[in-house]
Design a protein around this nucleic acid. Structure first.
Lengths: 202, 202
DNA sequence: CGACTGACAGATATTGAAATCTGTCAGCTG
DNA sequence: CAGCTGACAGATTTCAATATCTGTCAGTCG
């Protein structure tokens, strides 16, 4: 009866159990055992196993969102900021995948098994891109009539370099070249000075 | 003893068995049964089950490659040709996935389980894109110093709309908007008139 | 009285024995 | 004798019995 059982303590124990056993083997009983309580007590704080896992995932993603917030005080152009941000994201994913594949796979499973988490994550990441593009539009470096939609397009066009489904390709020795080529193409697309006479373009 | 057992007959029977039972349940014994021979006879024409499946897959992909060959006699600009080609690819994948999900999944498994087939397919598809871009470069509609690399970048940037890993997103009602936005971004990138003074660009 | 326990029902996962499949090859057959 | 068969060994898959887990709740304890 040392301390009261808090939601935070349960989350920490759950993350530890997930790291140790992986998403397939980690059970609520394991979490309770790690905390020295009965598994019934865990259900006093989280309604279901799914809710518990989702809370752990959200806590972890929130840290990622803070870490990935774009920096505008580096004296870089919008194109450079965008390239650096996409590169930082790619590096983080790639290193996470090669350094600790099991942990990477664990969180990949956790994100996927929730209905709301993927949208939550997407919203934040595309929001980051939108802020970079918006800054570029203000300085007339980029041209677009819909920042949000264009940010989504940039996210979609670079999917190969951040979507876990493509993680196996990140070990390819030429992957950085492929990344550079796609980012150059996309950045050039953002810069493109749409000629008013070409009004028929979709 | 009607006809001699040919490789072609075995391939046709194998495709039929794969359609009927799916990739997980289809066995060499099933194929032999469908042909009215012993399974030992099948091994006279194909060294392993994997080789047999690969041959079926290659035959099927070859038909796709012919069907997807870009058409240059439509009086379209290179941008229009590229957009139409990518749209045709997307439509084919999307409809294949929604019309006959099991068959789509079957061939997805077959392509994935081979070491050489994915590269074989990629080479053909990127080659098609390269030919369209090359035509655009000749008419000065597109600008690039490396057609092959740029074609690969276009392929990578549109991965969300042709890679089976993203098939579940193809049912989203706004997917066509996302497709249009990415293709517009990419086409604008191909058109971008690189200013000589911006020599520092990677 | 409010937090925790532990026994319970139904759902899910594990296990190992039995069945099936792959790939080989000696022998049959036309 | 060229092409096919069918029995075989080892590998893989299936299936049903067994064990474990999830989520609930009446009861315990401070």
């Amino acid at each position: 009866m040392a301390e009261a059982l808090t939601g935070e303590a349960i989350l920490a124990a759950t993350e530890e159990v997930l790291r140790r056993y992986g998403p397939a083997k980690a059970t609520v009983v394991d979490v309770a055992k790690a905390l020295g309580v009965s598994h019934g007590s865990v259900y006093r704080h989280f309604a279901t196993k799914a809710a518990l896992r989702e809370a752990v995932t959200r806590r972890w993603l929130d840290a990622v969102h803070v870490e990935m917030a774009p920096k505008f005080d580096q004296g870089l152009t919008a194109a450079e900021t965008l390239r650096a941000w996409l590169q930082a994201l790619f590096d983080k994913k790639r290193h996470g995948h090669s350094e600790d594949p099991e942990l990477f796979a664990t969180f990949q499973v956790l994100v996927k098994e929730s209905n709301v988490i993927p949208d939550y994550h997407l919203e934040h990441m595309v929001g980051h891109v939108a802020r970079i593009i918006s800054a570029g539009v203000e300085t007339h470096e980029f041209v677009t009539d819909d920042v949000q939609k264009t940010a989504q397009a940039v996210w979609d066009a670079t999917e190969k370099f951040h979507h876990p489904a493509h993680a196996q390709e990140w070990g390819n020795p030429h992957i950085q070249d492929a990344f550079d080529a796609v980012v150059s193409l996309v950045v050039d697309g953002l810069r493109y000075n749409r000629i008013p006479s070409a009004a028929g373009d979709a």
